[in-house]
Design a protein around this nucleic acid. Structure first.
Lengths: 349, 349
DNA sequence: TTTAGCACTCATTTCTCTCGAGTGCTAAAC
DNA sequence: GTTTAGCACTCGAGAGAAATGAGTGCTAAA
């Protein structure tokens, strides 16, 4: 059964008022905010209907009404006006996105902090491939007889490197052979496969090389496993404490621990640009009284990242969703064209 | 003026009891815990003295006593028994330290989390050079005509790498020259100097190379600046909320924001293995009611790291300090001999 | 110097009371 | 049939007031 347009309007006022004040909304306040003059008594009748239909709730008999998850859902789906970002805000976001990218992880963490600052709620960010990271290429650089630099390029255009030290002396001459070995036998495969390949080669490689080789492969395995593992970064968790619904320390602690545990955080449904999960729509117990707005973005061609905002159910869905989708869009663009800055013009005078 | 040994014993009981319970300690409780039977009345006389001398405080007339910062200080300096770690605990720490080290930052962050788990207080970790990081060596690897991998080795044996993409085509032939240029003119100097060197070369390098060169140098500058910046990682800040002294949400929020801001966190005095800062001994306002135990460790030859624990003034100094110093020691050892694992024996059957 | 005894203090807990925002219902007005 | 005004009613929040009890300070005796 469809709601009358007046009921919808009332629902909208209730949601928006409650978002702002975190206090139950009374009939009088609603009457004042409705266009067209309707008395508070009429509103009360409508409110009673809305409660009956499950869109609103009453904390106790003589309190105002607050939206139920069902009410929020309707609001999000139909009533919410696309929140347009002001020029100033847009610029702020753009600025944040142009932060010099040092490394992927850092950028992502930066972005999370920025977002948290912007919406005043905690955020979480996840970056990672689809679990099928493979080794693309390996290079070895000679440093001195006890150390070499290993450079690995993994799928998704990420590069990792490390200084390996060895007890056994290494000669510069060994490296080309080793490097060739690596690129011939170990590229294009995932972490699980690396170990097997190493075994296969154990007979056919000179022992002094094999030692080095296995060290390098072990490092590669580590890198791939880590890249495959979806790492989650959180930012601004302490903002929760500023919100009235988390003045209850135990509640705040439960949620913060959950965020810190970095497990089971909601991920957006495939395809949807921004997803909104309200209260009980969340799977995890710790989130049952909170809401999550989450968006995904693309990193390169075959990786996806994800950024989410966690807050009370009364969070300002319109504005958070707008910011988030704009932000995610920006991140996608940013990771898409990651090119050499050609800003400095070369002049020969 | 020296305290009588009985006064000291009383002080010790008060401190330890208060650490455990977070409640003011009454004369009766003390009497029960003192060896040799002394009546609570006698204790009260002694307590009055201790208050007068500034070692204890009374929240209000008819409450028990709690230690003042001065009292804690005496406890830490003289009364505290070196807390011996149990075998189980030692093993736990050892285990944590053997976590596979993926990258410096990760290890450090891991260590912080582990420590936080161990002492049940928030921790912060800092790693970084002495601000005088220099570029040691640069290598370039050809990927395809639009991208190259830049590998930089900075002082302290750290390696960083990145994939650079370019609009202009790059040929494999250009790289050796570029690499030679980099290693000849840009090694051994710090971030600030890099820009100047680039300027000096602007005339003498072919323009198409110069474009690439400046991109690489700009990346190098970034890396060095970041390495120089002392980055601070925190862990377990939410544990604060479990402690009675931070049930007051505003207090908790102040401290947590301070930790999140990652500024002005105490650093240990040079030389001392572990430093304990009690309440007002801390410089920053947000820490005036809390205490910090901080230790430093060595990373390689010319870098120092730092790990600190933040908690209420009644924190269990003995145990925290013991764990921390053991941990820091372990970290130093661990970073010291970072060698190739020679575990796998090579057999040719 | 130590101890027992007792009056006193004061934070905490419990309860009672009041206040008022907001409701539900009824009956009249539109 | 819908809207409105009016009024009794509910119930949480907040303010005191009173009871509680842990712990003290002081005095006088051991």
């Amino acid at each position: 059964m469809e709601l009358s347009s007046r009921k919808k309007q009332i629902l909208k006022v209730v949601v928006e008022d409650y978002i702002e004040t975190a206090e139950p909304v009374g009939s009088k306040v609603i009457a004042a905010q409705m266009e067209g003059k309707i008395s508070s008594a009429t509103i009360r009748n409508e409110l009673a209907d809305l409660v009956e239909m499950g869109y609103l709730e009453q904390p106790h008999t003589s309190a105002g009404r607050i939206p139920s998850p069902k009410g929020y859902r309707l609001y999000v789906n139909e009533l919410m006006e696309k929140h347009a970002l002001s020029v100033a805000e847009t610029e702020k976001i753009n600025e944040a996105l142009h932060i010099k990218m040092a490394e992927l992880d850092d950028v992502i963490s930066q972005a999370g902090q920025m977002m948290s600052l912007l919406v005043q709620y905690p955020t979480y960010m996840m970056a990672g491939g689809k679990g099928a990271e493979t080794l693309q290429r390996a290079e070895l650089l000679f440093v001195d007889e006890n150390s070499i630099i290993v450079v690995l390029m993994v799928s998704g255009s990420r590069v990792k490197s490390k200084l390996l030290k060895s007890d056994l002396p290494i000669t510069a001459e060994q490296l080309p052979a080793l490097s060739e070995l690596l690129n011939r036998h170990f590229t294009g495969i995932g972490a699980a496969e690396l170990g097997h390949r190493l075994m296969d080669l154990s007979g056919s490689v000179p022992p002094e090389l094999f030692l080095l080789l296995s060290a390098v492969v072990s490092y590669a395995t580590e890198i791939l496993e880590e890249a495959g593992k979806q790492e989650i970064i959180t930012a601004g968790t302490n903002r929760l404490l500023k919100l009235p619904e988390y003045r209850d320390v135990d509640k705040a602690h439960e949620l913060m621990s959950f965020l810190d545990s970095k497990k089971n955080l909601p991920i957006p449904a495939a395809g949807a640009p921004v997803e909104i999960l309200i209260g009980p729509e969340n799977v995890d117990q710790a989130l049952k009284d909170s809401s999550v707005v989450v968006a995904s973005y693309d990193i390169g061609d075959n990786m996806k990242g994800l950024i989410g905002v966690v807050g009370p159910t009364r969070m300002d869905y319109a504005s958070v969703a707008a910011r988030l989708s704009y932000f995610a869009e920006g991140l996608t663009k940013m990771f898409g064209k990651n090119e050499l800055p050609a800003k400095k013009e070369t002049k020969d005078e």
